[in-house]
Design a protein around this nucleic acid. Structure first.
Length: 480
RNA sequence: GCCUCUUUAGCUCAGUUGGUUAGAGCGGCGGACUGUUAAUCCGUAGGUCCUUGGUUCGAGCCCAAGAAGAGGCGCCA
């Protein structure tokens, strides 16, 4: 007999057609109540199926081994449930233990455990209801990314993980080398001689696929990347990882306004996809957050439930303001006038987290896109605006997690690009191929980077980014 | 990297002003229970109070250093 997956079994059109027939299930025991009722889960859905056991019909040794997260094979008759709480159940006819699990030694217990504890048991945490829901949704978002771009005719591009260019300008990089740390050959000046290294030059793990994506955009018109990204920053926060996944669309003939339209449509699409296809997992996470916040004082609770918030984001247009408008709003705000902000607001300096939070959570109460930042605080490749003071950059800010997307229209004018490179102290010759794109068939173009884990974090409502990636890499932690 | 907080049973936590034998709930184990839904009931075992040093007649509690973890900030996605 073929195994039936529980996600299949629980569909009314399936079980109505198979009532009173024998089915074969395999899965893990989530609960064994009253020596009679097994809650069985096989990971195909967050929902369990109830298996009813007449223990008189089974060897006591088998019954004893039915414990939390032991793995079993059950064949039995599919019948209408005689109890409340589920519509169908399985009357067990034969049970085989596939994998025992001694509850005295097993570190996971059928009770509430802290996220920190489960993080240390990363090889087991996916079996919990919460992480099972989170990682099913993570998959859904990844699939939706590809579906969104494919349906729009974008080309999926794989950009290199090992990069030789030292000028991507997005933070500290991890060095890639085959040299033994203590035995690296040196030059006459005593510096490490990377010309003898594997690639014949110094190489690093990528911090962004953007520059290479621009190559693709000027060939295919519309491309996107979706791959791992590495930052060797000593960041200790609930929204930073040393290894994360980033999505970077890059589009020829797009200006900054088109770029913002794409970003908004994209994020709303991802959220809608999960709302439409994973309602059970979302409902579980929503309830989990509500239970968790039940005992908190009102001011510490989230202003909206998880699903309510997701609906709110897809049903409302994002607020769009310029950096200059943001500065004016902030300087005229109550907290500013009352001296409640820790950092001053002044045109030319970057907005602090507290300022962004005020705009998103207090002023507009929805995602905000800020654009046209001062050129001094943004990267060299962002297009200089006509005012000569700002660049066509935009950040999409979300409640709770801050910046989800950072993007810009790229500088397509060679002379301006070279000027901005020099101002930033970047050796222009390293980017000879980047300049070539402007010399031969250049085009206006724009793109952005979306932090994959950050959008998964938002959709699942998880408060720490380390809990939406299977094996988080952060400063001091690379276990598993 | 900076600031703040936390560390007590397998897990989540309480532990008063420094005082004699360190507690609870859940989980485990043993038992009861054939319609349970975080099952329930009875019984039971389980401790390097993070580490080191100090103060004290006496330290889970006070002091110092260290370790690990979390939250906030910075860097950003």
């Amino acid at each position: 007999m073929k195994r039936t997956e529980i996600v299949q079994l629980l569909k009314p059109e399936f079980y109505q057609a198979h009532l009173e027939q024998t089915v074969l299930l395999m899965g893990w025991v989530k609960a064994f109540r009253a020596n009679r009722f097994i809650a069985l889960n096989d990971g195909s859905t967050i929902n369990n199926v109830q298996v009813v056991v007449d223990f008189e019909n089974f060897d006591e040794e088998i019954i004893k081994k039915i414990s939390f997260h032991s793995c079993i094979k059950v064949s039995g008759k599919l019948i209408e449930s005689q109890g409340a709480g589920q519509s169908i159940e399985i009357q067990a006819e034969d049970i085989e233990i596939l994998g025992e699990s001694n509850p005295a030694d097993y570190p996971i217990q059928p009770k509430r455990m802290t996220m920190e504890y489960l993080r240390e048991k990363a090889h087991f945490r996916m079996r919990t209801n919460t992480f099972s829901a989170v990682f099913r949704i993570r998959h859904a978002v990844a699939y939706a990314v590809h579906k969104f771009f494919n349906d729009k005719g974008y080309i999926y591009m794989h950009t290199p993980i090992i990069t030789g260019s030292d000028a991507e300008g997005a933070g500290e990089m991890f060095r890639v080398t085959t040299f033994e740390p203590q035995q690296a050959p040196t030059t006459e000046e005593g510096e490490v001689d990377y010309s003898q290294d594997f690639f014949g030059k110094a190489t690093n793990l990528t911090v962004s696929g953007q520059l290479q994506a621009e190559i693709g955009a000027l060939a295919f018109g519309k491309v996107y990347t979706f791959g791992p990204t590495f930052r060797a920053e000593n960041s200790n926060t609930s929204r930073h990882l040393a290894e994360f996944w980033m999505i970077e669309p890059e589009v020829a003939f797009f200006d900054i306004m088109d770029d913002m339209d794409l970003a908004e449509e994209f994020v709303q699409y991802l959220i809608n996809y999960v709302l439409d296809n994973y309602p059970d997992d979302l409902a579980f996470l929503d309830k989990r957050i509500q239970d968790e916040e039940k005992n908190m004082p009102k001011e510490k609770r989230r202003p909206m439930g998880l699903i309510e918030q997701l609906r709110f984001v897809v049903d409302n247009d994002f607020e769009r303001i310029t950096y200059t408008e943001a500065v004016n709003i902030l300087r005229n705000s109550k907290p500013y006038k009352k001296g409640k902000f820790e950092y001053d607001v002044e045109w030319g300096t970057d907005l602090q987290a507290e300022h962004e939070r005020f705009l998103v959570e207090k002023k507009f109460k929805k995602p905000v896109i800020v654009r046209d930042y001062p050129k001094g605080i943004k990267a060299f490749y962002m297009r200089l605006n006509d005012d000569q003071k700002t660049v066509a950059a935009m950040d999409v800010l979300f409640p709770g997690i801050g910046e989800v997307i950072g993007g810009s229209q790229r500088e397509e004018r060679l002379d301006v690009l070279i000027e901005r490179c020099e101002a930033a102290g970047i050796p222009a010759e390293e980017l000879w191929w980047y300049q070539d794109l402007r010399k031969f068939g250049g085009a206006p173009h724009a793109g952005f980077g979306l932090g994959f884990e950050r959008i998964v974090q938002f959709i699942t409502g998880m408060s720490n980014i380390r809990d939406v990636i299977a094996f988080p890499r952060t400063p001091g932690n690379a276990e598993f």
